[in-house]
Nucleic acid binder design. Sequence first.
DNA 1: TGGATATCTTATTAAAATAGTCGGAATTTG
DNA 2: CAAATTCCGACTATTTTAATAAGATATCCA
Lengths: 150, 150
Amino acid sequence: MKLSTKGRYGVRAMFDLAQHMGEGPVSLKSISERQGISEHYLEQLIAGLRKAGLVKSVRGAQGGYLLGREPDKIKVGDIIRVLEGPIAPTECVSEEDPECCTKSEYCVTRTIWEKVRDSIAEVLDSITLETMLEDAQKFESERSLYMYYI
Amino acid sequence: MKLSTKGRYGVRAMFDLAQHMGEGPVSLKSISERQGISEHYLEQLIAGLRKAGLVKSVRGAQGGYLLGREPDKIKVGDIIRVLEGPIAPTECVSEEDPECCTKSEYCVTRTIWEKVRDSIAEVLDSITLETMLEDAQKFESERSLYMYYI
DNA sequence: TGGATATCTTATTAAAATAGTCGGAATTTG
DNA sequence: CAAATTCCGACTATTTTAATAAGATATCCA
């Protein structure tokens, strides 16, 4: 039940792009340095995000990547689905083309996995890059308040 | 974000034991035949469940396994934790000994994984073998009602 | 125009996890 | 004693993960 680095790195990279909106294209090199992720590896991950339209690319010198749409229109669930595949604790309850076991038309355990799937999807789809930016801002202001009283 | 066969087979095996309560020890062989799971592989899985006290074993001929406690006291989350380890979409939010990344004391993405972890745990801990038995019974009666009208 | 900076594409790889398999020892029943 | 069973440790093939590497293509800027 672990997320792979693909999903985790992907969310961090997308959040990094969100934090640098309005500064023109952001190079993979700068993302990889800030986030401590291999540049070559990031390249693979972002290729998928680009094909899915979550990022736009600008080639050539001074090129880089930009968010494919407004941060409030990019859900964490979108990113995870691109990089990790459909949300599903088991194949038989995959969000797309579930391969049902033929053994039984009704399966008591399947209903469990469906509930798990839905609860994961609900969390991931309730968080957007926009809400992440707000959370980060909120923390920043709380921290400076705290610093003030020391 | 996939459950491995360990967790899936484990839940099915435990549910099988619940369905055969009161019939004396249930052999691995019979479970593996009913569930279509390799007997040798099941052996490995049930060893962990036994050490955790979720099942009791009876050695020798006519031996087998029994639930370690009443089915309403065995949560699906208990089974999953034994076979898959602590519930956690990432190491940094593991239910036990989370290995926090040293990079930042506060991490916007970590709060996401915490929410995912908690929502998974809530689902898995809300379902017991008892509730699974009830669900199976409910389906059975619904199905016979349906059959009646055909 | 040419060099520096980037993205894009494909192939390869080392390590770990997954999903078993195998053989045999120990225990209990009839 | 023989059959049925749990118990235990070692082995293995396949897949996935997490990169690494090399080079082609595109664009900016001096």
